[in-house]
């Protein structure tokens, strides 16, 4: 028997979504625009893309680029961050470089990426790597630094050497914060791939958007592409969030309030 609040939780968002789509449709109709598409036109555009088979190729291309750059950032960034957090001297040696490189928008590396890798798969992957690497490094580093001294003391007390201490105390204690960094980094990676594809390559969802505009002002396809980007980004976020539910990290995400 669903309670009233259950029904509300389901109906309220559905209602707003309906209203939003309605307002969109009405605005298109009232403004007599013949450029901006109505929701129905966007739906038709999606169908057209899916029918041509180009859609799945573009989605796969974007996801492959994100996976390459992001995984590279993960496998280099987490160990680097752990090392920086664990060895303050190493961190202070690299700090100026990191602080300087971090705020450079990954997209600003575009010309260099093209110079180094040409217009190829490697260029967007490199930009995604840059976008994801720094948040992951910083989150891992801060995660290690905020491990309570008590845990380290306990680990040392039981006779753990540095490698064991790192693997069995520092890493699990820092993991919740590292996961937060991974989530932020995945969001940025998804933002960067779209931009990179708008400039540097000729496939993928970012390319779809810019190409649909440039080749014949097909704004129905532009909006269809945007919706796809939103849905896939949402799915990626939900996927990473599942990690936060693992029992070994859940303690780090609990709210204190009763």
């Amino acid at each position: 028997m669903p309670t009233r609040s259950d029904v509300e939780r389901f109906l309220l968002p559905l209602g707003t979504a309906a209203v939003a789509v309605g307002v969109w449709a009405l605005a298109v109709r009232l403004s007599h625009t013949n450029v901006f598409p109505s929701p129905l036109k966007v739906l038709a555009g999606l169908k057209e893309l899916a029918g041509k088979g180009v859609l799945w190729r573009y989605v796969a291309d974007s996801l492959r680029r994100v996976a390459t750059g992001y995984l590279l950032a993960l496998f280099l960034g987490v160990p680097a961050g752990l090392a920086f957090g664990w060895m303050p001297r190493l961190a202070s040696a690299f700090n100026p470089v990191i602080q300087m490189a971090r705020p450079i928008s990954p997209l600003a590396w575009m010309p260099l990426a093209i110079l180094w890798f040409g217009v190829s798969e490697a260029a967007p992957a490199f930009l995604i790597f840059l976008g994801a690497f720094f948040p992951i490094v910083v989150a891992s580093m801060n995660g290690v630094r905020s491990v309570p001294a008590m845990y380290l003391q306990a680990g040392r007390n039981f006779g753990l050497g540095a490698p064991r201490l790192l693997a069995r105390v520092v890493f699990p204690a820092a993991l919740p914060q590292i996961l937060v960094g991974l989530r932020i980094a995945l969001g940025i990676a998804w933002l960067v791939v779209v931009a990179a594809e708008m400039i540097a390559v000729d496939s993928g969802l970012g390319y779809l958007i810019i190409d649909s505009r440039n080749a014949g002002k097909r704004y129905d396809l532009v909006v269809a592409g945007m919706l796809l980007i939103g849905v896939i980004g949402l799915l990626l976020d939900i996927l990473v969030r599942q990690l936060e539910k693992l029992k070994t990290v859940r303690w780090g995400f609990q709210q204190e309030s009763a």
């Binding site: 845990y151 306990a154 105390v169 204690a173 993991l175 070994t248 303690w251």
Partner: peptide, 9 residues
């Protein structure tokens, strides 16, 4: 420990 030093993970 004074505070709870058990490992939550």
């Amino acid at each position: 420990f004074q505070e709870r030093g058990v490992f939550p993970w």
